[in-house]
Structure formats: C-alpha cells, structure tokens
C-alpha cells in the first residue's frame, strides 16, 4: 500500500515539477548578452511562462538554476552557495558558450572556466548568445527528460569541481 502511495506521490511531484519549474538565474561573470536573451524569453514574443516556467529571486524556492557566463574567481563562492541553498532535486542549465566552456574568456587570469568546473550541470545550451528559441528548447528538453524513465544525469567538469 505504502509503495503505491509513494509511486503516486512521486508521479505527482514529477508532474508538478515539469509543469511549473521555478527558475533562478545567476550570472557568474557573463557579458550580459545571455542574460538579456533569457529575459527576452520571458517577454511577450517568446513567453516562456506558457510552459509554466517562473523566474524568481530566491534559490530556496528554485528547481532550476540557469547560469550564464564563465565562472570568475569572485563569483565562484557565490555560485556554490546558491547551488547548495537550492532544495533537492535541483537542475542546472548552463546558457551560452562561456557557461559551457569559458568561451572567449578561456585563459583569462580571473576566469575558472565553464560552470561545470564548479557545480554539476544537467543541460548545456551553446551559442554566443543562444537564441531565445534555443534556450526554450534546452529547458523543454530538460523537463521532458524528467518524465522519461532515464532522466538526464548531471555532468561534472574534468577537475570534478575542484577547480
């Protein structure tokens, strides 16, 4: 009996999560280009809210962490803190070439590299900056994978987050 209840609640949770993911956006050193495109996805032309996605401020209420920009030495601690403040299960989306790999800033003395050097990442959306359609596509793909029997597993960078 309790097994059935667990099954039903788990299904219910996934349903709620997929239909209304709350997103927090953190910029760890981006040039603003990706941030504007993320904001553009929320405005009337693209309207990400039709997928139930809500952008809000506190990491404690968030399901999905949307990161932009390479991780700078100053932003690293804050990024980890925000990630740790989020409740489980949590998902990380890296938006833009810099968040994926450090991009054009790779090799700068104050840049650690992509987001996956610091925290595990579930979805990578490349582009400089990615189009709003690409951001929507990435988020929708992540959400639909949660409904499948084998949801996406987070990927950690080469240094295993020790960067």
């Amino acid at each position: 009996m309790s097994n059935l209840v667990d099954q039903i609640t788990a299904g219910l949770k996934t349903w709620a999560r997929v239909n209304s993911p709350w997103v927090i956006h953190f910029n760890s050193g981006s040039c603003n280009g990706c941030d504007i495109e993320i904001l553009a996805t929320l405005t009337p032309r693209y309207d990400l809210e039709r997928f139930g996605v809500k952008l809000q401020g506190s990491p404690r209420h968030a399901d999905v962490l949307v990161c932009t920009g390479p991780v700078t030495r100053q932003a690293r601690e804050r990024l980890i803190r925000i990630y740790e403040q989020m409740p489980e299960p949590k998902f990380v989306v890296a938006v833009g070439s810099c968040a994926v790999s450090g991009g054009v800033f790779e090799g700068c003395y104050n840049v650690m590299g992509g987001i996956d050097r610091v925290i595990p990442v579930h979805a990578f959306i490349p582009g400089c900056p990615p189009r709003p359609e690409a951001i929507i596509d990435g988020v929708v793909k992540l959400l639909s994978s949660l409904q499948s029997p084998a949801p996406v597993q987070p990927i950690m960078g080469p240094d295993g987050g020790k960067a």
Binding site: T72, Q74, F105, C108, Y109, N110
Partner: peptide, 13 residues
C-alpha cells in the same frame, strides 16, 4: 571590481 575577468590583460596575448 567584483567580477573582473582580466580582459585587458587577455588582449595582450
């Protein structure tokens, strides 16, 4: 000076 990527230095390389 919180998020400093070092772009000016990077231009030199």
């Amino acid at each position: 000076g919180y998020v400093h990527r070092g772009i000016e230095k990077a231009t030199e390389s």
